[in-house]
């Protein structure tokens, strides 16, 4: 038997997958609700030759839709936090792990 294929091409795909499975196990949504939301996103966004990157981008979009519906995270909050991570990365010397605490704006607020 061939070795099992690697399921993810990049770490973020694995994290997106793990996040959704974990939130389902915590009871935030049913799997039927998840599959329904994901189906709609896939129908709207997927090309005929999808990659794992495109597929897991659909997972993130579907997750963000559910979080917005449940008033857990607005698109604005997600954008702001994403920008904070980008600033943290820029402020981190090459070779060191990137931590959100390194975001210069976050430190100024404190």
């Amino acid at each position: 038997m061939q070795p099992d294929p690697r399921p993810f091409d990049e770490p973020w795909q694995a994290q997106a997958f793990g996040l959704v499975v974990h939130l389902h196990e915590r009871g935030l949504f049913s799997w039927t609700e998840w599959a329904g939301t994901l189906s709609n996103v896939i129908a709207a966004e997927q090309s005929d030759t999808p990659t794992n990157a495109e597929y897991y981008r659909c997972w993130l979009t579907a997750l963000e839709q559910i979080l917005a519906q449940k008033k857990i995270a607005t698109p604005d909050l997600i954008d702001i936090t994403t920008q904070a991570w980008h600033r943290a990365a820029h402020a981190t010397p090459h070779g060191q792990p990137i931590m959100l605490e390194s975001d210069p704006k976050r430190i100024e607020v404190k």
């Binding site: 990049e10 973020w12 990365a89 981190t92």
Partner: peptide, 16 residues
Amino acid sequence: DNNLDPMTARVRALET
């Protein structure tokens, strides 16, 4: 500087 690709930053933001 370090850079995060857009998808990595987005997943990290959601996790945060």
